[in-house]
Design a protein around this nucleic acid. Structure first.
Lengths: 224, 224, 224, 224
DNA sequence: TATGAATGAGGCTTCATTCAT
DNA sequence: GATGAATGAAGCCTCATTCAT
């Protein structure tokens, strides 16, 4: 509780300031994600960013350490959304491992669809970051995908799934989720977001659910 | 008879020149792919590129129009490898659609593993290209993946596969093939290349082959 | 009332900014003219220009689009001086066509002497400009010399001048005016600026004024 | 007589070689003048020059010391034409100073019209040359214009001309001659070369010939 | 003589970052 | 907090010149 020690008389002020800072950060993060997705990290200048966010160049440096830092923040922003949304989605799905896998996958896809601009940056611009940032991202990626891997492990050990390589299946699901953003220009020609998720879920579960349990997951295996 | 000698006497000269040019292009393309994969397109300076390839900066411009052009060439180089290798692999696989799918996927993976440096650039740096280059790549991607889609269509119409969305399955297979390069830093911890291909093949076929035909493809569905 | 204050309260700010910009432009234009006359357009690097103007390289690009643009601006600067000074000089000379011709010529020479550095650029570096810039200059040249041509036409139609080719005489006068800058290294050995103008005026008028009217223009025809 | 000592048996060889060298120089000089007039000295690369002259880059360096040297040679080429053609034209004009002035002017104009490409370079690119080359040109300019100045001085001392500043009139005539090349883009709209020379001759002579002698030079003073 | 592949210094330009206001 | 003018390092590219063949 680091906020308490601060004097109470200043709380209102501080709260207002914090709110303002929060608002500014969000404003900048969104502008950055939008522009970077369109033009790539290096295609966006700080001046362009300032204009897009309707602030001055100088102000950006009050909220972020620099351009690299901003990129990292944009990426972390998405990863934090994963960290928030995936576990709760898994929880809500109940105790069935297969349901949890499906829920996790859908949650991933939801976040990516909402942050389509920023999601691709993980793949595209990670080389831009220094090793420090890269390591942070790598470990966050691993952390945020843990619920998914746990569900797969549970499914396997409980006999609901055939013997599978947990890491590989998790990797595939994450790849498919990101695929929606990476190849959006192509996929959007034939699929709506919801169809993409439903079909991919069915495809993967069809591959890994024990045949004898499939009837039970008819609602996940059917695609229409 | 000045024209006769020309067609033969000068051929050696021209041939030698062409060979040298070919050699230089390859040298530069390889150096570019290597460096760009490590540091990203924007992280590589022409100076650094020249040093890596052991030539002078100026010489690069004799073979490529500029940095963008070089990036495009690197990417096209991989796509051309797809265009060469995938169809022949499919052909050699015989007439069975399932075998053809597996062969196509393996060929994709082979090329990507051989060009791991360059393969990721398609995903990472496509925004860097102008729309002209981007369109060229898009159409090459679609062209080179046609054999795969054809095999999937054949499999579906012949009843070997369950009803699937051809585009989506093709997209998934391509994504998985590229996944080996994109997440190589992570995957190599637990998998060798051959295992990756074998397991992914099994996973996908398990999802799409009609249950009654699975026994026939035991060699593709088993992972060890 | 946010709009009212703006129109007045912010004027000072805007005015100050505009004044600063004006000052910078002049500073750069002068430095550019000075250097380019000495070393030629291509002999002047942006680095050298920045040093001469005591600013950083980058700042030049805030005020001018690039090196070409700067050259164009320098040239246009002289042409604008013509456009301002020649007509008023002609006006002040009264209604006599011959007086107006003499006044126009002197005004041309004055401007060229004041911008001796820049004046030669019109002749020397026009090929450097793109066709767009070249056309702009051509049309400004024609526009700014119109008062002179008009005076010549008036003189001819009123019988004060012998029959002359208006275009040619105008061309000659402009050439002579620029000659002071073009061959300054040679002319300054024997002539002061004022003598140059006086003598050239006498020479030309002697060639074109109707003999019977010459006595009336004794003050222009005598050279000492 | 440095050519004699050389063995006589080799003379044919040497002659052939010299002829070839002469031909090459001419070929290069012409190509250079052509290109430089169109694109300016700095707008022409040695590669472009080689192509225009249908030789290799390397060969240019066998005939000229470098690019600057070539520019100097192009300019000197024109000045040498002046040195050759003007005196003989003056000679042929007889002893009358006025006729000699007119002949000199026409000779100047002829050479300039024939070398229109190169003639402008004297004005445009002289700053490009080092001081050595510039001095050479300056002194050649002064030398080649001496016949003109001599004729003017003669005319003045013999009473055929009114009192004039010899240097200035010579300067004007040279300027007018070059004017044909400098403003060719504009003048060609209304004048043919011959008209230009005739009219300018008439204009200048009208300004400097003693009125009482004018009838005698009716053929030079009339413009049609 | 003649070629043209190769070099590399130097130029123009961009843009992340700073700092006085 | 906020601005934006100013900085200057670093990048891409050109092109005069050389030299092995």
């Amino acid at each position: 509780m680091p906020s308490r020690p601060r004097s109470q008389a200043q709380d209102p002020d501080e709260a207002a300031r914090a709110a303002r800072a929060e608002w500014r950060s969000r404003q900048l993060l969104d502008a950055a994600a939008r522009l970077m997705e369109r033009d790539g990290f290096h295609g966006v200048s700080m001046q362009a960013l300032a204009e897009e966010a309707s602030v001055s160049v100088g102000l950006i440096y009050r909220y972020f350490g620099g351009k690299d830092d901003l990129l990292l923040a944009v990426i972390v922003d998405v990863l934090e959304a994963f960290a928030t949304r995936v576990p709760s989605a898994v929880e809500e799905a109940g105790n069935d491992p297969v349901e949890r896998i499906a829920a996790a996958f859908r949650a991933y896809c939801d976040v990516i669809d909402e942050h389509r601009h920023a999601a691709v940056l993980t793949y595209r611009e990670s080389r831009t970051l220094g090793s420090e940032g890269r390591n942070k991202i790598k470990s966050m990626e691993i952390d945020t995908s843990e619920p998914l891997r746990a569900a797969i492990r549970d499914g396997a050990s409980s006999g609901l799934l055939i013997a599978v390589d947990t890491e590989l299946v998790a990797h595939d699901l994450l790849l498919m989720a990101h695929g929606w953003a990476l190849k959006h220009w192509y996929l959007e020609q034939t699929l709506r977001f919801d169809d993409y998720v439903t079909k991919q879920t069915a495809l993967v579960l069809n591959a890994i659910v024990e045949p004898q349990h499939r009837p039970h997951y008819r609602h996940l295996l059917a695609t229409h």
